[in-house]
């Protein structure tokens, strides 16, 4: 139940994105989307630890599109696949629809009354209360319907089992790398601990980041050969 309350209060990624664009008084274009990308990413970072992972996931999907758009803006010669172009156009479209719907939301909000404005008479109010089963009703229907009802209640009441995968973060990997490397070059494969695919990906991302930060130097003699990593002077 707490998720419901939280999710109802947080604005979704499209709301946030629209907010950022309108704050800067911009139109919805690829250029403006590129401009608000870092603000959007900052917002995600600022989201508290208690934010439900599902909401976070929704934000990350949009963030990845924005990063693609920003990359394109920075490197106009970057060739995009058809799918990527469609994804970008799609985001623009959804944002535009979102913007249009804002005024519609206002309409409903204005008209909404916390108590119904129109009342109806209670069903068969003046008749006395009797048990009146439907025509085709058989006694066997009782347990069947009771079972159905229990099934529905189970969906709401039973606790969900969470499957937690051990995810290695890029930050953790970066710290590990910094501990192991010296002025002398270390092999990429030597930095792997688990030999899992996801670890390789995270390791690679960590190295790219460290290169960007100018903390390390890398060298590769030929295609697909060992990558040598050393601390930068």
């Amino acid at each position: 139940m707490t998720f419901e309350l939280k999710s109802e209060q947080y604005c979704g990624p499209l709301d946030k994105l629209l907010e950022l664009i309108e704050e800067k008084k911009l139109e919805i274009t690829q250029i403006s989307l590129a401009q608000v990308t870092s603000d959007f990413l900052k917002y995600i970072e600022s989201l508290s630890e208690s934010v439900d992972k599902e909401i976070l996931a929704d934000f990350l999907v949009i963030a990845s599109r924005l990063v693609l758009i920003k990359s394109r803006a920075l490197f106009p010669f970057l060739a995009l696949e058809e799918e990527e172009k469609a994804e970008i156009a799609d985001l623009e479209l959804r944002l535009k629809i979102h913007q249009e719907l804002k005024a519609a939301k206002e309409n409903i909000y204005r008209l909404w009354s916390e108590e119904p404005q129109m009342m109806n008479r209670e069903f068969l109010k003046s008749l006395r209360t009797i048990f009146y089963p439907p025509k085709k009703f058989k006694i066997e229907d009782f347990p069947r319907v009771a079972g159905k009802l229990t099934g529905e209640l189970e969906k709401i009441l039973l606790p969900q089992m969470s499957i937690i995968n051990n995810i290695v973060s890029v930050e953790t990997k970066m710290r590990e790398i910094l501990k192991k490397i010296t002025k002398k070059a270390v092999n990429f494969s030597a930095l792997q601990i688990e030999q899992s695919k996801s670890e390789i990906i995270v390791l690679f991302l960590a190295i790219l980041y460290l290169i960007k930060k100018q903390i390390i130097e890398v060298r590769q003699e030929s295609h697909f050969s060992e990558i040598k990593i050393a601390k930068k002077n």
């Binding site: 999710s7 109802e8 209060q9 709301d15 719907l101 519609a104 309409n107 916390e114 108590e115 119904p116």
Partner: peptide
């Protein structure tokens, strides 16, 4: 004496707007 009041959260408003319009 109708004590039952219904308020609209942002999520409810957004979803209802979409379905209504």
């Amino acid at each position: 004496q109708e004590d039952f009041r219904e308020s609209l959260t942002p999520a409810a408003l957004e979803t209802l707007t979409i379905i209504a319009y």
